[in-house]
């Protein structure tokens, strides 16, 4: 099987809200925008108007490094999603900026059997209409 990622025929798209719009559109500028609390400096996700740790209202999106590690993953082998042919990897990515923040995403550009817990990955963005889906691939490109 070739490891190189092919854009699927369709994706289920999120419907951005005022809170989530930066996350889903930051990719337009190549930025992974994750909410951060300016009072306690900790990142959190999903975005919310209040920091769940210190209750500060002084929160907003900031560009994260886009680097992360695979915390857990599963290889989906059934056609749950129309036009997104299996197998594909659904993973929890813990961000280098704040390992406590874990994003659900797909790890691509790598054979599913070569994905492992701890694999270092970088974000990239796939544009669908007016949203940019953050996806991840191994550091250094296609494997």
């Amino acid at each position: 099987m070739t490891a190189a990622y092919t854009r699927p025929g369709t994706r289920l798209l999120p419907d951005p809200t005022p809170e989530s719009e930066p996350f889903w559109t930051g990719g337009a500028n190549g930025e992974l925008l994750v909410h951060r609390c300016r009072a306690c400096t900790r990142w959190f996700h999903p975005p919310a108007p209040v920091c769940f740790r210190c209750r500060s209202l002084d929160v907003g999106p900031e560009p994260a490094s886009g680097r992360g590690r695979v915390a857990a993953f599963t290889i989906n082998r059934q056609p749950w999603i129309p036009a997104y042919p299996p197998p594909y990897v659904v993973a929890m990515i813990e961000l280098a900026d704040e390992p406590d923040v874990r994003l659900v995403s797909n790890v691509v550009d790598v054979a599913p059997e070569d994905v492992h817990v701890g694999l270092t990955v970088d974000v990239f963005f796939e544009r669908w209409d007016d949203v940019w889906i953050p996806l991840f691939r191994p550091v250094g490109g296609v494997r």
Partner: peptide, 9 residues
């Protein structure tokens, strides 16, 4: 909003 677009059924 957050999990489904990426296949987290």
């Amino acid at each position: 909003a957050w999990d489904y677009p990426l296949g987290l059924v």
